[in-house]
């Protein structure tokens, strides 16, 4: 069957798609929590204040089954109840702020340590996929990283700013344009 075409997320998704705790993928207070943050920038280097990032990743043990409960709802009020604080769903969703900044708190995935990112924005007619690679010994064996020239490879590597805190900017265009991925 032929696919339904993509259309931009537009500027007004903010009351529909983001949810409280969307970037809190790690169970509350987990001692192995890592923070990943950065900015989303356009071809002029300006902040994109209306981008939406989704993250999908394996659990620390490498399992990829995920779990429901990212958007847990309160059946009494009809509002969001928040995650249950225990389950690791592997899914996060955050909108950028007025400065184009996002932040996530998660657990490092098992296997090759990368977070899969799907990026949406006003002005972007079809989402973009990329990956946030966290530092780790396994990176040398990763076929995607190995296939990239060193200059572009760096755009997929998160930088450790402090123990457990990583920086990752996304540049949609320009000389340091992030590597975006095609799976079809």
């Amino acid at each position: 069957m032929l696919p339904t075409p993509s259309q931009t997320v537009g500027p007004f998704y903010g009351y529909a798609l983001p949810f409280p705790g969307g970037g809190e993928i790690a169970p509350a207070g987990h001692r192995d929590t890592v923070a990943v943050h950065g900015r989303v920038l356009d071809g002029a280097g300006e902040a994109i204040p209306d981008a939406l990032l989704e993250v999908w990743q394996p659990a620390p043990d490498g399992s990829r089954t995920g779990a429901p409960g990212s958007l847990r709802r309160d059946p009494v009020t009809g509002g969001f109840a928040g995650r249950d604080g225990v389950t690791f769903t592997g899914f996060g969703r955050v909108a950028t702020d007025a400065d184009g900044h996002y932040s996530l708190r998660t657990l490092a995935p098992g296997g090759v340590p990368y977070l899969s990112v799907c990026l949406f924005a006003r002005g972007l007619l079809h989402h973009l996929f990329t990956r946030i690679y966290l530092p780790g010994a396994d990176l040398a064996a990763d076929p995607l990283l190995a296939s990239l020239e060193p200059g572009r490879r760096g755009t997929l590597l998160a930088a450790e700013e402090a123990p457990g805190t990583y920086r990752f900017d996304l540049r949609l265009q320009g000389p340091e344009e992030t590597v975006f991925l095609d799976f079809n």
Partner: peptide, 21 residues
């Protein structure tokens, strides 16, 4: 709005059967 918000480099193909995606 697309002018400064789309990549100019070609997308990089991933054909890894182990891809998390």
């Amino acid at each position: 709005s697309s002018l400064l918000r789309h990549p100019r480099q070609p997308l990089v193909a991933v054909r890894d059967p182990e891809a998390v995606e």
